[in-house]
Design a protein around this nucleic acid. Structure first.
Length: 857
RNA sequence: GCCGCCGUAGCUCAGUGGUAGAGCGCAUCCUUGGUAAGGCUGAGGUCCGGAGUUCAAUCCUCCGCGGCGGCACCA
């Protein structure tokens, strides 16, 4: 039989699948539906093995579920707007649309080469007007619902990418793409009211039992619900109260129990009161300017000194109108959390303590740790945040912290000066981007009519051709004609909004569009009702609080708009690990491309040299594949040598899919060997026959079916492949002789199972084996093998025998043997008897079918 | 600082309250008409350290040590 030749086999089967159109999904089916989706790719130009792993995981699920009798939807599309296209345009003068389209074409070919069971008829890109026009329609509906609004506010400005970023896109004070330190700017921007859904998004996490705990925890932290009190400190009498005359300063606190420890009020430099004072007092405006200078990077925040300015104004403590507190402006108070004002309790909050020590404000402890003397307890440089009893606190004295909180809230509410309240870390989602390659926000600004929606009949608002990306900034805004438009209401000259949507808007509903990408409406309700939610979603954990939170929010918003039925978009989520690779450097530190490296081993030491020159190299760390480290491997490179099935097997075999996997050339060779061993089993040419233990072979087959099925269902693909290795090892020693009919039948059963069991992982190989076996049709359409439970059970088991917890021997016993029977067997076993050496038995522990433990005195 | 994950063979990693595992690497041998190779056999372990629970702990609990990730002036 010919050697297995993936270069010939793989394209042939891909053509056969395509010709038969077997992966097209239809809503007309008696079978239960199953929607499996991988996060769609950004068309950067080239596929790397990280993509390959992501899509291979989804493909295993898609093929497995199809074989298990589900009506499977497995679509693919392109997250096609975004900055890399603009950067390419700026660097090479190409049109972003053309650059993107060309990338999509080449990546589509590479993806198809992976042999994925995808319904390509549903493909779309987010930069297609037929998609983004519908997105504009969706936005207008959300706006009409009151879920979108425009406001001037402080935003994160990325000075390199020259655009605003959402909070979720600022990592450690830096832009998530550019890495530039983000500045605070005051701009008028569009926001979506994700905070309206904060409670629901938080509570909904509990229902996502097929999501990783880690992701749920991260979203929980991100939403950051805290329980506390909003209360107003009234201004003291007889002082100039700034206009508009508020009665006092509203603060939010999670520690109302410590109100009697208050020694100052601190407001944010961005607080309205601070800004009013600044208007009439140069010292205030100078101070505010000073505060705003500081950056927001982690290092800067960490080292930033607390700065304060005493306004001279005072407020009264709610419980005691004689007790006055000064109002300070402080640089550490955030405007966009709570009310932008806090009361300072230095004894029990480290930030307040630092501030109080610097400005010589009083430090009054009100929580007494257990065992401390109330007259001797002092707070020095470290605030006390532990448990204890309240003291120095009037009516709260003697209470623990929790009762004190409740009592303080009750009293404040009774006084009408505040109310128990929750606060969230989550902020509304800023969606305006000052970029030209994105979905235009469908809005017109008219000098007399204000901000108006583009009439639905005029959608989509299309991007113009020929934008100039050669200069930094928003190419759309400086286009000579595009923004000039007549007001839809009064007909006067007006201007289009020139900001575009954050690309995370594009990806927050695409999974719904896949259910009918040709629909004239944004979402075809019937198709969406049939397919949604996505049963299994697969992607990187880096989107834990970005895409995955936005999509949950949009799904709820569209549900309330009547466009979707489910609360949650993704019933199951799987976050796969990265593909990493060793790195190599020359002696001068220069990175060397992994393809130029030759590895060898001398004993247990490994050596790396440049293949062409033999120059010795330094073997560096194992790192995420990146262009700069030159450790990227492309699936295409692998396919040329070993075929794509070997690559698929390898990325799934070496570690569980949620963990990182290290790409190695020796690893891919191991997978290649497995492929050849499997193929060799389907060889029909005569081999040296032997006596077939039919029962043992059938048991091995049925056990393989059972364990591999369970492993796939549990996302333990590495374990499934390990079981395949074992099964193949069993098969290769079994060659029925001519005339051994029962042996031949058992072997055929085994091979038929093997072809189907390996088909989700190595689909091309499986088809070729299936054909070789002479089975009907394609293995891609064959049902999953079913095991006979009777054949997966043992008649006899080996029981290890322990003496005082140490293994000292074993006995064979019938499966399910009773304790008495096993005891008898053990005590008659000569080796055990000898080991016991006549010691008195205190106890015998028999665990059925597992183990025996003899405990001596 | 808060929250979480990880630590098992030389490497990369599975696994289980009850017999210590895989791939690669390494060693021995066989084959050289499965040959850009293939195969047999084997060596190799303080399951990070300590204490506790248990008849029995790599696994459960607690305390450390080391590595990694998320959040962070969120009141």
């Amino acid at each position: 039989m010919a050697r297995y030749n993936p270069k010939e086999v793989e394209p042939r089967w891909r053509a056969a699948w395509e010709a038969a159109d077997i992966f097209r999904a239809s809503e007309q089916s008696e079978k239960p539906k199953y929607y499996v989706l991988e996060m769609f790719p950004y068309p950067s130009g080239r596929l790397h093995v990280g993509h390959a792993r992501n899509y291979a995981i989804g493909d295993v699920i898609a093929r497995f579920k199809r074989a298990r009798g589900f009506n499977v939807l497995h679509p693919m599309g392109w997250d096609a707007f975004g900055l890399p296209a603009e950067n390419a345009a700026a660097e090479r003068g190409v049109d972003p649309a053309e650059w993107t389209t060309a990338n999509i074409s080449s990546m589509r070919e590479e993806l198809k080469r992976l042999g994925l069971a995808i319904d390509w008829s549903r493909e779309f890109a987010t930069c297609d007007p037929s998609y983004y026009g519908q997105q504009q329609a969706l936005f207008l509906r959300l706006w009409a619902r009151g879920l979108a609004y425009r406001k001037e506010g402080l935003v994160n400005w990325d000075p390199v990418d020259m655009t605003v970023l959402a909070n979720e896109q600022v990592i450690d004070g830096k832009g998530w793409r550019s890495g530039a330190v983000v500045e605070r700017r005051k701009l008028t921007q569009w926001f979506l009211r994700i905070t309206d859904y904060a409670d629901e998004l938080l509570d909904g996490l509990a229902s996502l039992d097929r999501w990783p705990d880690k992701v749920r925890l991260m979203q929980d932290n991100w939403i950051g619900r805290s329980q506390g009190l909003r209360l107003t400190f009234e201004f003291s009498a007889e002082q100039p109260v700034p206009e508009p005359a508020a009665s006092g300063i509203e603060v939010y606190t999670t520690r109302p129990d410590t109100l009697f420890g208050a020694s100052f009020i601190a407001i944010s430099p961005y607080h309205p009161l601070a800004e009013q004072l600044a208007a009439s007092d140069e010292r205030v405006s100078a101070f505010i300017a000073e505060c705003r200078k500081g950056g927001s990077s982690e290092a800067e925040v960490e080292s930033a000194e607390k700065l304060g300015f005493n306004t001279g104004l005072t407020v009264k403590l709610p419980f005691d109108s004689e007790w006055e507190l000064p109002i300070w402006i402080a640089n550490f108070v955030l405007m966009d959390y709570g009310t932008g004002a806090v009361f300072g309790c230095p004894a029990h909050d480290q930030r307040d303590l630092d501030f109080a020590r610097k400005y010589a404000l009083p430090v009054t402890p009100v929580v007494l740790p257990t065992g401390e003397d109330p007259t001797a307890f002092h707070v020095k440089q470290e605030a006390y945040v532990g448990p204890g009893r309240l003291f120095n606190s009037s009516f709260l004295d003697g209470m623990d912290i929790e009762s004190g909180k409740a009592a303080a809230i009750a009293r404040i509410e009774a006084l009408g000066q505040g109310k128990g309240a929750v606060a969230y870390r989550l902020r509304d989602w800023g969606i305006s981007r000052q970029r030209g390659w994105g979905c235009p926000i469908p809005v017109i600004h008219c000098p007399s009519c204000g901000t108006l929606p583009v009439p639905e009949a005029d959608l989509p608002v299309q991007l113009p051709k020929g934008l100039d990306f050669s200069r930094p900034g928003n190419a759309l805004a400086r286009h000579p004609t595009w923004k000039h438009v007549d007001c839809p209401d009064c007909g006067a000259a007006a201007e289009r909004e020139t900001d575009t949507f954050d690309t995370f808007v594009d990806s927050s509903w695409y999974f719904a569009r896949f259910t009918n990408p040709a629909a004239a409406e944004p979402i075809d309700k019937a198709a969406a009702d049939y397919w949604l939610p996505v049963d299994q979603y697969i992607g990187g954990i880096e989107h834990a609080v970005l895409h995955l939170l936005y999509s949950r929010f949009i799904t709820r918003a569209l549900r309330d708009e009547g466009l979707l039925a489910p609360d949650e978009p993704f019933a199951g989520l799987f976050t796969q690990g990265m593909v990493t690779h060793e790195t190599y450097r020359r002696q001068n530190g220069e990175w060397v491309d992994v393809s130029a490296v030759e590895l060898s081993a001398e004993g247990s030491a490994r050596r790396a040299v440049l293949r062409d020159t033999g120059e010795p190299l330094i073997i560096g760390d194992i790192e995420k594949m990146s262009k700069s480290k030159r450790n990227v491997v492309a699936p295409a490179d692998i396919a040329d040598t070993y075929g794509i099935d070997a690559a698929r097997l390898f990325v799934l075999s070496d570690s569980p899919p949620e963990r990182d996997v290290q790409w190695t050339s020796s690893g891919i060779e191991g997978s290649w060997r497995l492929i050849n061993r499997v193929w060799a089993e389907f060889d029909t040419s005569p081999a040296e026959p032997n006596t077939v233990d039919v029962d043992a072979l059938r048991r091995a087959t049925h056990r393989a079916i059972k364990s591999i099925t369970a492993a796939i269902e549990g996302f333990r693909f590495n374990s499934a492949i390990a079981r395949l290795y074992e099964f193949v090892a069993v098969l290769r020693s079994v060659r029925p002789a001519a005339g051994d009919l029962s042996g031949a039948a058992a072997r055929r059963e085994a091979l038929s199972a093997l072809a189907r069991l390996i088909s989700p992982f190595a689909p091309h190989l499986a088809e070729e084996c299936w054909l070789q076996l002479g089975e009907e049709g394609m293995v891609a359409l064959a049902p999953w093998p079913v095991y006979d439970p009777a054949l997966t059970r043992d008649d006899e088991v080996t029981l290890p025998v322990q003496i005082n917890g140490k293994r000292r021997g074993e006995v064979r016993a019938p499966a399910g043997a009773s304790e008495d029977v096993v005891r008898e067997l053990v005590l008659r076993d000569p080796e055990i008897v000898q080991r016991l050496g006549g010691a008195a038995l205190k106890k015998i522990v028999v665990v059925k079918d597992r183990i025996v433990n003899l405990v001596t005195g």
